[in-house]
């Protein structure tokens, strides 16, 4: 309890909680907005009724009914921004936690059983560390055909399509678990011969019980810190991938791609059409900041000896 009070005492942590809270509120409120009549477009796009004397081709500035204006083509920015929070939270939480679970599992298993298995795992981790996830996106896209062209019947592709897993998602999961495995592995290695574990073992605890009841609860905290930061990082990577044309569209990155021509082109500037890029940009940056603040706070609270240490990983 004292830890929690200390955690809440830092303004950085409060700010982080506040930011994440706002995004959660945005995500919850998104479905309550009036949806688009057009069933063709994605759920998170809403076309605004044409206003007399304006052109649909030019973005409309904020006004009554359109709090943040429209994109070129007459789509409501506020609407997509709220749905974007929903998509970002879902994507970030799903991808980061699956990655964390994968890495934790691999790290814990290899360190617990030790020996050759552990050495092999370390080799494999070193190999994975040389691979940038971005390079796997198209390869995975070749494997995961879109559901329309799938042959009927149960196949890996059908399952992935059913789960709505995109190549970007899979690339990020498959090639970002290594930090978790390294950290958890190091922690488990340090703990597995400690007295309380030996005591549990001598009382007849099995491998499964030892790993999940005794070792992991004490080894997990650095992974939680990494997880908090990864939630923001994964969303930013997804947006970056879509922005440069690798697929994996999300509402925020859709807004950015849509707005790009209006800030970077003939007669364009950052000031004229500020509403086409600023909301999505700020949302993305603040989303990342919020999770980073939470991660830093958790880091200080959970593992003081790692504070500001070499845990941070560069992100594209």
């Amino acid at each position: 309890m004292r830890g929690l009070r200390q955690f809440l005492f830092r303004w950085q942590n409060l700010l982080g909680i506040l930011i994440v809270g706002v995004f959660v509120a945005m995500a919850v409120s998104a479905p309550h907005l009036t949806a688009s009549d057009n069933a063709e477009s994605p759920q998170w796009i809403r076309a605004v009724e044409r206003i007399e004397g304006t052109s649909r081709r030019v973005p409309l500035p904020p006004g009554p009914g359109i709090p943040l204006g429209t994109t070129a083509g007459g789509y409501d920015i506020f609407y997509s921004l709220l749905w974007g929070a929903r998509s970002a939270l879902g994507f970030g939480l799903a991808v980061a936690s699956i990655t964390a679970m994968l890495g934790t599992f691999i790290g814990a298993m290899s360190a617990y059983f030790g020996g050759l298995a552990h050495r092999l795992t370390l080799r494999v981790i070193d190999a994975f560390l040389t691979f940038p996830p971005i390079a796997a996106v198209w390869l995975l896209a070749q494997v995961m055909r879109p559901p329309e062209v799938l042959p009927p019947g149960i196949s890996l592709q059908a399952v992935l399509a059913q789960l709505r897993v995109s190549p970007v998602m899979l690339a990020l999961i498959l090639f970002s678990w290594m930090p978790y495995a390294r950290i958890i592995g190091a922690e488990v290695l340090g703990l597995k011969h400690s007295e309380y574990v030996e005591a549990a073992r001598s009382l007849g605890a099995g491998h499964f019980r030892l790993i999940f009841r005794h070792l992991l609860p004490n080894a997990i905290s650095p992974a939680i810190v990494l997880l908090a930061r990864d939630i923001g990082g994964m969303v930013i990577l997804q947006a970056a991938f879509h922005f440069i044309g690798l697929g994996g569209m999300s509402p925020w990155s859709w807004l950015l791609v849509n707005g790009r021509n209006w800030i970077l082109g003939p007669n364009a500037s950052l000031l004229t059409y500020w509403w086409v890029y600023l909301p999505a940009t700020l949302a993305l940056v603040i989303f990342g900041i919020g999770w980073n603040l939470l991660g830093d706070g958790l880091n200080e609270a959970l593992n003081p000896r790692f504070y500001n240490g070499p845990m941070r990983w560069g992100r594209a």
């Binding site: 950015l256 800030i263 970077l264 364009a268 940056v285 900041i289």
Partner: peptide
């Protein structure tokens, strides 16, 4: 570390 590089790049280009 908070500003995504692709956004920073876009801003600098602009």
């Amino acid at each position: 570390t908070s500003i995504p590089p692709f956004i920073l790049g876009l801003m600098l280009l602009t």
